[in-house]
Design a protein around this nucleic acid. Structure first.
Lengths: 329, 329
DNA sequence: AAAGAGTATGACAACGTTGTCCGACCGCCG
DNA sequence: CGGCGGTCGGACAACGTTGTCATACTCTTT
């Protein structure tokens, strides 16, 4: 910028004015400055500019579990789009479900003075964010609530969704329903499991530990779990898969075996309607989830100081497959 | 930082030293400083720090077409992971295939002094990046080459891939092969189409314009195009879908009609093996694509000044479905 | 014609940090 | 006891930008 000023024969401040489109600069002078800018390929240093004014960095931070997962990449996309409408860019990072890493990333984002944080939390203690919030970096949690911190959160009705799925299976005559889940350490899994148990309790069906399988991390494990449960005495006549990876594995295994066990999966996914057997899923609007979270965050950034809110978005039972207890019953 | 210094009763510089872990600070003093840091919740301002030293911002910029698309989100994920190993964060944005927007985003990223740029180009002129490259912001193009700029690029063997797909169909006895593509404005589409024509020429099969359908933007359009082509006189006995969205639409329509036309799709995708009919696809390693691009970029950031390289990664024909010309032939 | 109002430009400090340098203090040796 | 090398702390400038204020000039008004 000094060089531009020298080349144009004007003061530093005049260059600043021209670059920022401030008024009160003569046409001829502005043209001279612009010519110099073009000749030197000058580009305003956004960092210095933000620093000077103590101004916003026009950046928001997004922490998710894994960017390559369609659920999270949809969130990233929607928030990036909404950020762009405010000339804000998105600094995104994956925690890989690692609390330590999550904290590192969050601290890093804070030290870069992002205008706000969107977090799908993996950790179990976010108290260290309290000071940041006080110092003006608002935080909104997505999909799971933060812990030890009062902050906005946008969640799904996981419990209600699972409940409606199981209620449906029960209505169709199923009494032995296998539930496949990842880890109970994850908030959403706990909620979904609780919802399933709610529905069973509603129907007066007792809890059978043998029908709940945890630690199902991927499609392969899911397939194995299904295979195993089906070969036990008194096998389930229906399955509830508590996330989409599990659903995929279960579909594959049921289809492979030609089993007519019913299946309801939590999470809709892109090609679910093209699966080899029709599939009933508990769906929701991922884009809306992200949209609401981003709206909350931007409101906070714009100075909203009202009490933290928790928004719970509904789920919807998308009935595609036949779930009725069939010939095997 | 001034506050910390005051609270700890030391000078500004001492705080800086402690925060940066520089040597030559007495233990007692360091502890006092750390206590003050903790009490005030101080966090070093990364922007000011980078500004001062003219140092790297520990940020790289990624421009892709659309973050929600699994192909691009995989790229984003891999590059973010590699960046993290260097304590670098990823600033990502979607161009939505809009050249104007792409240029805006790129300029914005440059003004934030990112350490480097990874770009899946949508625009048709990247000459404006030349000055940035000269000024030390290296650029690596992914999936498609940049235009009017000498820069590294990591590409796929689109032409070879399409060629091998069509060669396979020809070997199986097909003579009328419908080709479905998005827009010829996109580099990859042109290359893939050229590859298909190569294979036809190799086999001595003349070009028939009626067998090539452009402007197929999504699964629905693809389905319509397939339906239309199959109802023409002398319909194709096989299809080549030039991207995965098209493939999905084509699968769906062929399956719906119970057609036994063969299908080869460019791009593998997550649940392709679970499609209602087995599917032969032209696959490649998206992660490797991103990995190589990031490697090139980091080498440049670390000072590699050798001539720009173009890396072309191989594709692979993944034969799952039967492609033989069947009863309809 | 003088005063006032407004416009155009520039000098300077400041944002939060760190590199450079200088001085203070320590213990040690001659 | 004076000087010397080493360690530690601090004053100051600088990174690139912009807000504040002062100044010089132009034009209008009485």
């Amino acid at each position: 910028m000094v060089d531009v000023a020298r080349l144009a024969g004007v003061s530093l401040k005049t260059v600043s004015r021209v670059v920022n489109g401030e008024p009160h600069v003569q046409r001829a002078m502005a043209d001279r400055v612009l010519a110099a800018v073009a000749e030197l390929g000058f580009q305003r240093n956004h960092m210095a500019s933000a620093l000077r004014a103590g101004r916003a960095s026009a950046t928001i931070g997004l922490i998710i579990e894994e960017l390559a997962n369609p659920f999270y990449s949809t969130i990233a996309h929607v928030t990036a789009e909404m950020a762009r409408d405010r000339d804000t860019l998105l600094l995104s990072a994956s925690s890989e479900e690692d609390p330590v890493r999550e904290e590192q990333l969050l601290r890093d984002l804070c030290s870069r003075r992002v205008d706000g944080l969107l977090v799908v939390p993996a950790g179990c203690d976010h108290s260290f964010l309290n000071s940041q919030v006080e110092m003006g970096i608002p935080v909104v949690f997505l999909d799971r609530p933060g812990t030890n911190i009062e902050a906005d959160a946008v969640l799904l009705d996981n419990r209600g969704g699972a409940r409606s799925g199981v209620r449906r299976l029960v209505a169709d005559g199923h009494r032995r329903i296998g539930v496949l889940l990842d880890s109970v350490d994850v908030h959403t899994m706990r909620e979904r499991l609780a919802g399933a148990q709610d529905a069973l309790a509603d129907a007066g069906i007792g809890y059978d530990g043998a029908l709940v399988r945890g630690g199902v991390r991927d499609p392969a494990t899911a397939a194995a779990a299904v295979a195993d449960m089906l070969t036990q005495p008194n096998p389930p006549t229906a399955f509830l898969a508590l996330n989409n990876r599990i659903t995929v594995g279960a579909v594959q295994e049921l289809w492979r075996r030609g089993s007519d066990a019913a299946l309801v999966g939590f999470d809709d996914f892109e090609l679910s309607h093209l699966m080899p057997r029709p599939l009933t899923v508990i769906g929701y609007d991922t884009r809306e989830l992200a949209r609401r979270a981003a709206q909350l965050l931007f409101a906070r950034i714009d100075g909203d100081r009202s009490r933290p809110r928790t928004v719970v978005l509904p789920t919807e039972l998308i009935e595609r497959g036949l779930t009725a207890a069939g010939a095997t019953a």
